[in-house]
Design a protein around this nucleic acid. Structure first.
Lengths: 130, 130
DNA sequence: ATTTGTTTACGAAGATATTCGTATATTCAT
DNA sequence: ATGAATATACGAATATCTTCGTAAACAAAT
């Protein structure tokens, strides 16, 4: 099964670490922890432990060739986003993606450029459906 | 603090029950359980327990005037949707609502009517921004 | 009134997530 | 080589969620 097909369910803590790894690319525990500390207070071994567990679960891969291991996300940000979004649409928005879209647009200021991008995308979808 | 301001975090099981209560309105444990059974196998006392806990947490209110208690959601569906969506935008989509919107539109077939509705809504937003 | 069925209350077991102390191993500077 | 700093490994405590068995309260039927 490819990465795209995996159905993953990172916990809150795991998601925080994934975000850092997506942002930074492959990193050591220390590097991840230093970023994490800024938004959360946790001990170093806590971060280490979670990353080890994530590795066991297959969420992270690690390079142990040097003493200081280097971890990297196995799952892509996009796939994770899609999975979590799909689940939210299903369980929170009764399966209606457009209901979610309307909520999202209503409660967040989007720039005119972003709105245009969305409209252009809608046009594209409509064309394809014809 | 009003209902709108509460920051709630229902668990998976709690969300399932909330959905049923939003759909049905105030209901007994038995009524909720019978719906729940269709999508999940769980014992009656399990459903009861979760609803009792939800009541303790303030997620549900209950009417104990008759022997068979009647439970109702304290939080509205819309507020819950907004809260969970906000959190997802923040933690999964790096704060970009439009990024989420594009994902949602891309991965779900929406009907032409729904797409039109979204476009109309976008037009409205743009007008307001002028 | 006794039985039968339904409901709530209580408590505890099992599962998972989170946290961290401590031990062990490794590296590096002296 | 010895000591200081840093890394990993391990295990356990704590918290939360989920599940359900059992008991007690209550209601309805016979």
């Amino acid at each position: 099964m490819s990465t795209a097909g995996k159905h993953i369910k990172p916990t809150e803590s795991e998601l925080e670490i994934l975000r850092i790894l997506w942002e930074r690319g492959p990193s050591t525990v220390r590097e991840v922890h230093e970023v994490l500390e800024k938004i959360k207070d946790a001990g170093y071994t806590t971060t280490l432990k979670i990353m080890q567990i994530m590795h066991e679960k297959g969420l992270l891969q690690r390079d142990t060739s040097s003493k200081t291991h280097i971890y990297a996300a196995v799952v892509s940000q996009e796939n994770t986003q899609r999975q979590l979004l799909d689940k939210m649409i299903d369980t929170v928005f009764n399966g209606s993606a457009s209901q979610l879209v309307l909520q999202a647009l209503g409660n967040h200021k989007s720039s005119p450029e972003e709105l245009e991008k969305i409209k252009a995308y809608l046009d594209e979808i409509e064309k394809q459906q014809k």
